[in-house]
């Protein structure tokens, strides 16, 4: 994959970044000694712009922008292979997850279509309390301007009687909605305390 950044380590280093990531993930990034086990275990290395071990190194070097705008953090499938094999007991998958959260907070998301898919999913949870995957596919296709994503699968799914047209509403969906609202309120309070 094409590299979009030229490294100018000193000029772009944000020394607070490693601390931020360590706090968010609860992992000691400084323990990483670049053995490369995580990248070797990762089924997605071939589509990453920076393999997992390089993401770790870039965090150590305070390269906040590069890391938070990387495609890798959004292509990570949270499969846990890296975490299972890191000899330093670093939960690499957790670090990748925290980086996704940070990249969203800092509005630096590169995997926009993936974020969009996640957002549509959460909107359905907020509204109905449960999710209907098959209802989500066409919705996602339209929003991402890829209306034909998986259209080849639709007739087969219908034939098997697996397309639920009306989402099942949870009786306590107001409570589920409340969880989202209280979470949002908590986040903005946390933001204010920080700033």
């Amino acid at each position: 994959m094409e590299r979009v950044h030229t490294l100018a380590i000193q000029a772009t280093s944000d020394p607070r970044f490693i601390g931020e990531v360590e706090r968010a993930s609860g992992q000691q990034i400084s323990h990483c000694y670049q053995c490369g086990n995580c990248s070797a275990s990762c089924a997605y290395t071939y589509v990453y712009d920076y393999p997992a071990n390089q993401i770790m190194r870039l965090v150590q070097l305070g390269q906040k922008d590069i890391v938070l705008t990387s495609k890798a953090i959004w292509l990570c499938a949270a499969c846990q292979a890296c975490t299972t094999r890191c000899p330093c007991n670093i939960d690499v998958a957790k670090v990748m997850e925290s980086l996704r959260v940070l990249s969203r907070q800092e509005k630096k998301v590169s995997g926009r279509d993936i974020q969009l898919f996640y957002d549509e999913f959460l909107k359905l949870v907020k509204r109905f309390g449960r999710v209907f995957e098959t209802g989500l596919l066409p919705l996602f296709g339209m929003k991402a301007k890829k209306p034909f994503t998986d259209m080849d699968l639709a007739p087969r799914v219908i034939r098997k009687g697996k397309l639920g047209l009306i989402p099942h509403k949870v009786k306590g969906r107001k409570h589920v909605e409340g969880i989202f609202e209280r979470f949002e309120a908590y986040c903005s309070r946390r933001e204010k305390d920080k700033g």
């Binding site: 949870v170 306590g172 589920v176």
Partner: peptide, 11 residues
């Protein structure tokens, strides 16, 4: 109700 799955984790 839904557990939130990967989208909630990533949020």
């Amino acid at each position: 109700s839904c557990c939130g799955s990967t989208p909630a984790h990533s949020y």
